Computed example of a mutant assay.
Amino acid sequence: MTSTVALRPYRAADEDAAIALWQETWQLAYPAIDFAARVPWWRERWRSELVPKAEVIVAECEGELAGFVTIDASGYLDQLVVSPQHWGSPLATQLVDAAKQRSPRGITLLVNKDNARAIRFYKRSGFVEAGEDVNPTSGRPVLRMAWVP
Rank of each mutant, 00 (worst) to 15 (best):
S3D: 02
T4H: 06
A6W: 00
A6R: 05
R8N: 02
R8K: 01
R8Q: 01
P9I: 00
R11S: 08
A12V: 05
A13K: 04
A13M: 02
A13S: 15
D14Y: 00
E15S: 11
A18S: 12
I19E: 14
A20S: 07
L21F: 12
W22A: 10
W26A: 10
A29H: 08
D34C: 05
F35V: 03
F35C: 05
A36Y: 10
A37K: 00
W41K: 09
W41F: 14
W41P: 02
W42P: 06
R43Q: 12
R43P: 04
E49D: 07
L50M: 09
K53Y: 01
K53R: 09
V56M: 04
I57Y: 02
A59W: 03
A59P: 02
E60K: 03
C61R: 05
L65M: 06
F68C: 02
D72T: 03
A73Q: 01
Y76G: 00
L77Q: 04
V82L: 07
P84I: 15
G88C: 11
G88K: 08
G88L: 09
S89V: 09
P90C: 12
A92K: 07
A92N: 08
T93F: 12
Q94T: 06
D97K: 07
A99E: 03
A99F: 05
K100S: 07
P104I: 02
R105V: 06
R105L: 08
T108R: 14
T108S: 12
L110Q: 15
V111M: 11
K113D: 14
K113H: 14
A118K: 04
A118G: 06
I119N: 00
I119V: 15
I119Q: 07
F121W: 13
R124W: 08
S125F: 10
S125V: 11
F127V: 10
V128S: 15
E129V: 15
D133Q: 13
D133T: 15
V134A: 12
N135L: 11
T137M: 11
G139V: 12
G139T: 07
P141I: 10
P141S: 13
V142H: 09
R144Y: 13
A146W: 03
A146S: 14
W147Q: 04
V148R: 15
P149E: 10
P149W: 04
